[in-house]
Design a protein around this nucleic acid. Sequence first.
DNA 1: TGCACGATGAAC
DNA 2: TTCATCGTGCAC
Length: 183
Amino acid sequence: MQKLDRAFYDRDTVSVARELLGKHLVHVVDGTPRIGRIVETEAYLGPHDLAAHSARGLTPRTQVMFGPPGHAYVYLIYGMYSCMNVVTEREGHAAAVLIRALEPVANLAGRSQGPGLLCNAMAIDRAVNGADLLGETLFIVAPAVESRIRIARRPRVGVDYAKHWAKRLLRFYVSGNAFVSKK
DNA sequence: TGCACGATGAAC
DNA sequence: TTCATCGTGCAC
């Protein structure tokens, strides 16, 4: 298992979103690694992308998006669900990849299809917001054997307010995988 | 200081 | 299709 390095995240966001598919997200909780295979992602390109949180500028919530790549941006949505993002591109660019669904690999608590459920199953909440993905508790690895996959593209979910950005095909998932979220 | 609204999920 | 539930950002 090879942990992804900083250079992996310090690239254009669409490439990172595509190549994250098939990688393993690992969160070590009380010494136990919770592991899920990433099967669905969405790219949020930066302040010019009206669907991205960073489109409203630098705020206390979004400041990790403006920080260096390879960090976790975790926020609360609808007052009850956490969503996990990976910060991409150079510091100040404010782009990120939302992880939308995982296929269970080890020690997950319950289902993990959908950004809210995934965070429950992985025990990810705002306590890990800003965590460095090159650290020892939350990180992403390339599995020893990476199966060949076909990548499908769709519009992102729940961003109808973002005008023409809502139509962009910035959601990626493993074609045919049963753990991709519905909708 | 107040308020409208989500990058959602589950029940009905 | 409706509702639970609350942090965030912006209007006033």
